[in-house]
Nucleic acid binder design. Structure first.
Lengths: 269, 269
DNA sequence: CCCGTGCCTTGACGTGGATCAAGCGTCGCC
DNA sequence: GGCGACGCTTGATCCACGTCAAGGCACGGG
């Protein structure tokens, strides 16, 4: 119990789930639903590229039909709001491609990004049916959307599903605690090193190569995630570059030239 | 789903559960088991003072017998380690009285306290069967201890129990996100104001009065929770005192004289 | 009773990262 | 092709908080 079947802790702060669900038809305000593509997706979840990473890993092929029946597939451009802090929590979402950021704001506009979501990651847990943070796309994104009530009902039928969600929530919690350590006690250099390594590990988990890390988000997003300013993020990158620990490549990629050095740096050694 | 039956979010970062379980007999290394006290506790969980706050609220009186059967009651003095980062996660615990702190360390000794636990709070979620943080008593503490495997089995029989734990984990996650905002983006004054208000609200939830807040933990614990130093915590307290927002009472109590002022302060207004 | 130990407070000073302020390259648009 | 917008970098300066140091106070033990 408590997470042993989802052995991933890297810096996600809002759980994981999956399915490449298509075939949904109900038009929704402000979202483009992906079009059904025909016979091939009788059970699109069964063919989902991120299935193994997500909630859906808890279900067998035949059980996936049930998920399939309630899922809608959405596509969003970059820099769109998926939902806002305080919204009623009517759906939960699963990212199937692209990057999403979650954040909270103070009244004066200060922002804390609490997590980045990539393919396979899940979002929508809430308290009192109100969402506690805003979700915004960083890149173009595809999402699976599940009505909460329907998914809730599914959890009654499939305890495995509930287990999986619980285990993922436990992982989130562990990642959140790591982030608290980072925010409360690490220096700018340590924060950046930790961040790069975390992204690298998460990419590896998704089956991408771990070395040149892709940073789809802006300096300012990184700053708001690490409790820094864009200037400090920028200066720290150039400093790491000068010291030979990393190389900045084009296309928002970073080469972790001295991974061991970064590992030590992340821990303050 | 996802938390609506546990509408509490205040700064806990490791869930809630309960039962004043006694009658356990198996001696355990390094813990004093509370003695069975006889006929009165045939079902001690049924009479648990923190039951309504905790996991146990998910079960009916008769079902509690099952919990009762696997619980052990422990008492620990102040400043004892309950478990350490990296330990195998063989038990989960529920605090029935006293205060516990959870923390993570960096190799050079920097410490981040990720949460304080009070009566009703629950701890022991883990990833990969390894605990990700250390738990240490702040005051004398009583705990209920459940073997993970047994509790796991119970969850299969009582889906309500699993739901409850999941919902509590969701609450923890929300609290953790609030703490990230605090650590990453708030000033020392805002941190202290937030901290005092959070403790006050949590005390109210436990049925204690919310105004003179009790601070059982040291300045240095507060500092390590808020990402500050003891000196800054101390200075900020005296500053709040001078401005009339709080009064420091004896016995580690603080009077929140200007609650509205503190509320604004906590949000940066 | 004295002394040591811990915890808290206060003061003086130093500094990491924030703030303020240019530049610079890239991109989309007219 | 020119030009504004935007994101990134870099430099100069500032300041909130950390660091270092000292002293007060409560408590416990010899």
């Amino acid at each position: 119990m408590f997470g042993q079947d989802a052995p991933d802790v890297e810096g996600r702060h809002a759980a994981v789930l999956s399915s490449e669900g298509r075939g949904a038809r109900i038009a929704m305000s402000s979202f483009d639903l992906a079009k059904p593509v025909g016979a091939m997706d009788v059970n699109p979840c069964g063919a989902c590229p991120v299935r193994s990473l997500s909630v859906c890993a808890a279900l067998e092929d035949d059980e996936l039909d049930r998920l399939n029946a309630i899922v809608q597939s959405l596509r969003l451009e970059a820099h769109r709001t998926v939902f806002s802090e305080g919204d009623p929590a009517e759906h939960v979402f699963n990212v199937t491609s692209g990057t999403v950021k979650l954040y909270k704001l103070l009244p004066d506009g200060r922002r804390q990004i609490t997590g980045f979501l990539f393919a396979g990651d899940f979002v929508g847990l809430s308290v009192n049916d109100k969402l506690a943070y805003t979700a915004e796309t960083v890149t173009p994104v595809s999402l699976c959307r599940f009505p909460r009530k329907r998914l809730d009902a599914l959890m009654d039928d499939f305890p495995k599903l509930q287990r999986r969600l619980f285990s993922m929530a436990s992982n989130e919690l562990a990642a959140a605690q790591d982030q608290m350590l980072l925010l409360g006690r690490k220096s700018a250099r340590e924060k950046i090193a930790s961040f790069l390594l975390t992204l690298s590990r998460r990419a590896a988990r998704r089956g991408q190569k771990e070395n040149p890390v892709h940073l789809p988000m802006s300096r300012s997003d990184i700053a708001d995630y690490l409790g820094l300013t864009t200037e400090t993020v920028s200066r720290t990158f150039t400093q790491l570059k000068s010291s030979g620990a990393i190389r900045l490549l084009e296309g928002g990629k970073v080469d972790l030239s001295d991974r061991d050095g970064l590992l030590d740096m992340a821990e303050g050694l």
